[in-house]
Simulated assay, not measured.
Amino acid sequence: MESNNKAFTYFDESFDTKEQLPRAFSVSFEEIAGADVPQVRVVLDDNQLGDIINDNSIENDFYRYHDIFHYSFATLLGWSPCARAMMKKKRKSDRIIDEVQDGARAAITEEAISLIVFNEAKRKDYFANSRSVSKTTLRIIKEMTENFEVHVRSEKDWELAILESYRIFRLLICNNGGKVLFDMNNKEISYQSAIN
């Protein structure tokens, strides 16, 4: 599947690099040994990103790996207020952008999208044998993001980002974590097992 975007626009291109999402980076998802419940630590350059995550669920549904969605959205859509906050890449030099595009409402919207998609994904074996996201889910995502810069991304762009993030999500589950390489310039995400 190909994106509908002929030329990819970086929403943060006009900002200093310290306020840009990194164009290439790698993140490790590390299962914490000996924890009472399964937990994951997410690490970039030896620094923990965000909080240690568990499933926050009665069932073991692997939601502890859901940060993969934020970093995938950042890479494939150029948008993730959650990744910006965790990586300390908020665009604070512009008060309006910082408040509206990188603020709490945008981050809550992204978390809600992740959960909406996750609920569909669980019913579909985390998209293991599916090449599509429901039209209803994609329509809801477009409606939820219409006031944010990412509104220019098409439903097809969202579908590609979701399916690719779930490809990696399944690898993280199968291997109890691992390292994920993100290449925003080439719109590629690749996986390495933790033993590499």
Results as ranks from 00 to 15, higher is better:
residue 59 E to V: 06
residue 24 A to Q: 12
residue 91 R to T: 06
residue 80 S to F: 01
residue 60 N to H: 15
residue 72 S to V: 01
residue 79 W to E: 09
residue 42 V to I: 13
residue 82 C to P: 06
residue 68 I to C: 11
residue 73 F to A: 15
residue 67 D to M: 06
residue 47 N to G: 02
residue 70 H to E: 01
residue 39 Q to I: 01
residue 74 A to Q: 04
residue 88 K to V: 06
residue 81 P to F: 13
residue 38 P to A: 10
residue 36 D to W: 10
residue 54 N to M: 01
residue 23 R to H: 08
residue 99 E to D: 02
residue 37 V to N: 07
residue 48 Q to Y: 04
residue 29 F to G: 03
residue 68 I to V: 15
residue 44 L to S: 13
residue 58 I to L: 08
residue 69 F to R: 02
residue 54 N to E: 05
residue 95 R to N: 01
residue 90 K to R: 10
residue 65 Y to P: 02
residue 45 D to C: 01
residue 66 H to Y: 02
residue 25 F to I: 09
residue 85 A to V: 02
residue 78 G to M: 04
residue 36 D to N: 15
residue 68 I to G: 08
residue 35 A to H: 03
residue 33 A to K: 15
residue 89 K to I: 03
residue 43 V to G: 01
residue 26 S to I: 00
residue 32 I to D: 00
residue 57 S to D: 08
residue 36 D to M: 13
residue 33 A to S: 14
residue 58 I to W: 04
residue 47 N to Y: 05
residue 44 L to E: 11
residue 36 D to R: 15
residue 29 F to I: 04
residue 33 A to C: 03
residue 72 S to T: 05
residue 98 D to C: 14
residue 34 G to S: 13
residue 35 A to E: 06
residue 82 C to T: 15
residue 29 F to S: 01
residue 73 F to G: 12
residue 68 I to N: 12
residue 76 L to V: 07
residue 33 A to Q: 14
residue 76 L to H: 07
residue 33 A to L: 07
residue 93 S to D: 04
residue 100 V to Q: 05
residue 50 G to C: 06
residue 81 P to R: 13
residue 92 K to I: 07
residue 23 R to L: 01
residue 43 V to M: 14
residue 85 A to W: 09
residue 37 V to Y: 13
residue 43 V to E: 09
residue 29 F to L: 05
residue 68 I to M: 11
residue 33 A to W: 00
residue 83 A to N: 12
residue 99 E to Q: 02
residue 56 N to Y: 11
residue 45 D to G: 04
residue 37 V to G: 02
residue 50 G to R: 00
residue 83 A to I: 10
residue 30 E to T: 13
residue 45 D to N: 14
residue 100 V to A: 03
residue 44 L to F: 15
residue 31 E to G: 00
residue 60 N to V: 14
residue 44 L to N: 10
residue 38 P to D: 05
